[in-house]
Design a protein around this nucleic acid. Structure first.
Length: 113
DNA sequence: CGATTGACGTTAA
DNA sequence: TTTAACGCCAATC
């Protein structure tokens, strides 16, 4: 321990760690993740990290923006893949392809308590 | 090394 | 109210 968390290298690791712990049928937001990591001031880079997580063990499709909109669906390849994956996991959507955050929002802090 | 962008979010005009 | 710009931090060009 006592290791200096440069945060830079840990950033992706933290993002991945958090996203990885999101259960199926649940989703999270960039702001929530960013805040949990400590870089809440720049939620942008959270999404940035996710864009690279596609192809790894991180279920990026469970991460959406604050509106619950699948902002990065086109990063998965097929534009319908993201929504499809979530629906397959039990996540429901509004008429606008937005996740019903009220039903599937995964609260990191709550889970940690 | 410098400048630009980027799956966001918030505040200001 | 809607639209625009800003901020933040790191990665990529």
């Amino acid at each position: 321990m006592a290791r200096k968390e440069t945060a830079k290298e840990n950033f992706y690791q933290k993002v991945y760690a958090l996203v990885r712990q999101i259960p199926e049928g649940k989703v999270s937001t960039y702001g929530a993740i960013a805040e949990k990591i400590g870089t809440k001031l720049s939620a942008r880079m959270v999404g940035y990290a996710l864009s690279q997580c596609v192809g790894t063990d991180v279920p990026a499709h469970r991460v959406v923006n604050r509106f619950g909109a699948l902002t990065g669906k086109h990063h998965f390849g097929p534009p319908d893949l993201m929504k499809r994956l979530l629906q397959d996991e039990g996540v429901t959507f509004n008429a606008d392809e937005t996740v019903k955050m009220d039903l599937h929002f995964y609260d990191f802090k709550r889970q940690r308590r």
